[in-house]
Simulated assay, not measured.
Amino acid sequence: MRWRALMLPRMVEELLAARGIELTYETVRRWSVKFGLCIAQRIRSTALAKGDKWHLDEVVVTSNGKKHWLWRAVDQHGAVLDVLVQSRRDRHAAGRLMRKLLKKHGRSPRVLIADKLRSYAAANRDLGLNVEHRQHKGLNNRAENSHQPTRVREKVMRRFKSARHLQRFTSVHDQVANLFMHCRYSANAQDKRQARTQAFDAWKTVTSGSLQDRLAS
C-alpha cells in the first residue's frame, strides 16, 4: 500500500520493523519497481467501465533542471483514465494523449473538457473527433485536482529523479487511487466502510494475481 499512502521506502522500512519484519528500504524500492506496473495493469483490466466525459489537463514537473509536462485524463467521476509524461506542451503532445486514450478505451468520449489551451482544440480537429468540446477553466477542476497527489509526492521526494520515474509513479499511483476512490465519496460511515472493504478485497485479488504472474515470468 506504499502507493496509496504516498510513503517513501524508508517509511515502509520503519513500519515493517515495528512489526518485527526486517528488510531494507532498497528492497522496498525494488519491489515497487518490479511489481508496481503489473499491479496497475491488473487493476485497469478488472476496473468497471469509465465515464463518457473526459477532463484533460497538463501540469509542469521539473526534474534535474529540465521541465516535463504531465498530461492527465480524468472522467466525470474522478477516476484517472491515463497519464502521459512528455517534453512538449503543444498540439502534438495533446494529440498523443488523446490517441492513447482512444486506443485504450476503444471509443470516443461524449464530451471533452479542457482549459483554454489551444492545443486541445487543434488535436481534436487533427483526430477528426465528432464530440462536444468544452473549454473553460472552471469546468476542469476534476482534472486539476487530480494533480495534487503528484505534487505531494514531488515535495516529499524533493522532486522526481527523471521523466521515467515520474511516469512510473503516476501510472501506478493513479490506478491504486481509482481502486479506493469510492471510499472518499460515500454518503455515510456505513457506506464508507462497505466501500473500503470491497476495495481491500479487490486489492487482495489484484496483488495476489500480479505477484504470481510476475514471479512466474
Rank of each mutant, 00 (worst) to 15 (best):
M1E: 12
R2M: 05
R2Y: 00
W3R: 00
M7W: 10
V12I: 14
E14R: 15
L15Y: 08
L16M: 14
R19I: 06
R19T: 12
R19N: 10
L23V: 14
T24A: 13
Y25D: 11
E26F: 10
E26C: 06
T27R: 01
R29W: 09
L37N: 11
A40Y: 00
A40F: 04
Q41F: 13
R42C: 08
S45G: 05
L48Q: 06
L48M: 08
K53Q: 06
H55W: 05
V61H: 03
T62H: 15
G65M: 10
K67N: 15
K67G: 06
K67C: 14
H68S: 15
L70Y: 01
L70E: 02
W71I: 04
W71Q: 04
V74P: 00
D75P: 05
H77R: 10
V80Y: 02
L81I: 11
V85E: 00
R88N: 14
R96L: 11
K100R: 15
K100T: 09
K103T: 14
K103N: 14
K104M: 13
H105V: 04
I113N: 01
K116T: 01
L117N: 08
S119I: 00
S119L: 02
Y120D: 11
Y120N: 03
R125Y: 10
D126V: 05
D126K: 03
L127E: 00
L129W: 09
L129F: 07
N130A: 12
V131Y: 03
R134L: 13
R134W: 14
K137L: 05
N140R: 04
E144T: 12
S146T: 04
S146W: 08
H147M: 08
P149D: 02
R159I: 04
R159Q: 12
F160I: 01
S162L: 06
A163C: 07
A163L: 06
H165Q: 11
R168D: 05
V172E: 00
V176P: 00
A177P: 04
N178I: 04
M181S: 11
M181E: 11
H182C: 08
C183V: 12
C183Y: 02
R184W: 12
Y185I: 14
N188E: 06
A189F: 13
Q194F: 07
A199H: 09
D201I: 13
W203H: 03
K204G: 09
T205H: 09
T207W: 10
T207V: 15
S210F: 14
L211P: 03
D213Q: 10
L215S: 08
